[in-house]
Simulated assay, not measured.
Amino acid sequence: MKNKVLLVFLPIMLSLAACTTVNEKPPKSVAKVVKPKKPLPAQPTAKNTKPIVPKKPTPGSGTATYAIDNGKNNFKVESSMPAMQEESLLSPTGLPSATGQSAQPVQAIPAFQVEDARIPAGTSPAVVALLTDAERNRASGDLDAAVVSTERALRIDSRNPTLTYKLAQLRIKQNKPQMAEELAGKAALLAGGDLDLKRKSWLLIAEARRMQQNYSGAKEAKAKADSFFGH
């Protein structure tokens, strides 16, 4: 009996369950709202740029519009100054002096003869031996050895004017006029009353100045040497 009742109610329950399933609606999907982005302002392109066209001047107007130079035109700039020609400089003889007269060139003067000096009496034998050795070296052309011997003699007798004068002679032969002038000046001071040695010393000074192209100073020294004649 119970089985018959279940068979009767089972189809009814299945139909009710199917209706319930059909009537259920699926959940609605929620769409996200996206705000549109603001469009960027349009950038000017090279195609949109228009070439600048010079305006034509209107008749009767006081101003005019000209096209802008693009700098491509080449212009040749010519100097308005006349071409300068090179001129040779005037020689010193052609230049006028302060007095308005042409300056005369300085003329060279002939060499002065340098005289030898004798060894004074009473000189120590050691000094005489050194001077003899110096004279022998000078005669053979060894001027450096002659200078060494004379300087050794001066260390023994430093205030001997004849030794100083002989060393000045060697400096002249070595082509050292400045040193020779200094030594000859010292010899002239040490000579004292020996006027002959003074004259020879000033004559050597004149030659040293001539070698240095101090011609006016050489003439003065020569005149000083001549002043000792007759004394």
Rank of each mutant, 00 (worst) to 15 (best):
V53Q: 15
A153R: 03
L203F: 01
A83M: 06
S97H: 00
G62M: 08
T65P: 02
K50R: 10
A180I: 01
P54N: 12
A121P: 05
N160E: 01
P51V: 05
L7A: 01
V147S: 04
N74E: 10
S91G: 07
S216V: 02
T63M: 09
F9T: 14
E86A: 14
K47D: 09
A31D: 14
A103V: 14
A208Q: 04
G193I: 10
R118T: 09
K35L: 01
W202Y: 15
Q213N: 13
D157Q: 10
S102L: 07
A98E: 08
F229Y: 03
A206F: 07
L143Y: 12
G122N: 04
I172W: 09
R210Y: 09
A180C: 07
I205R: 12
N175T: 03
N70T: 04
T45A: 04
K47Q: 11
S91C: 08
S61C: 00
G71Q: 06
T150A: 11
A223F: 04
Q212V: 07
A67Y: 07
M179E: 14
P57Q: 13
A208C: 13
N23K: 13
E181C: 07
V114M: 12
M179Q: 12
A83R: 08
D226C: 02
K4Q: 15
E78Y: 06
P57C: 13
A108R: 05
P110C: 03
L10N: 06
Q174M: 10
E78D: 12
A129Y: 00
A67P: 10
L89K: 11
P27K: 11
V22T: 10
A168D: 08
L163S: 02
G230R: 14
A187C: 10
A145H: 02
E182C: 06
L131C: 04
R199F: 04
I12K: 07
L183Q: 04
Q178W: 04
E151F: 08
S79F: 00
K166P: 01
D144M: 02
T49S: 11
I68F: 00
K176T: 04
A168T: 08
L14D: 05
A180V: 05
Y66D: 02
L130I: 03
V8I: 13
A103I: 15
L40V: 11
P125M: 02
L95S: 12
Q113S: 08
F229I: 05
L167S: 07
G71S: 06
K50S: 05
D69S: 06
F75C: 05
A188P: 01
A18M: 11
D196E: 10
M84T: 07
S61P: 01
D196G: 00
Q104I: 07
K222Q: 15
S15L: 15
R152V: 09
T58E: 09
R136K: 13
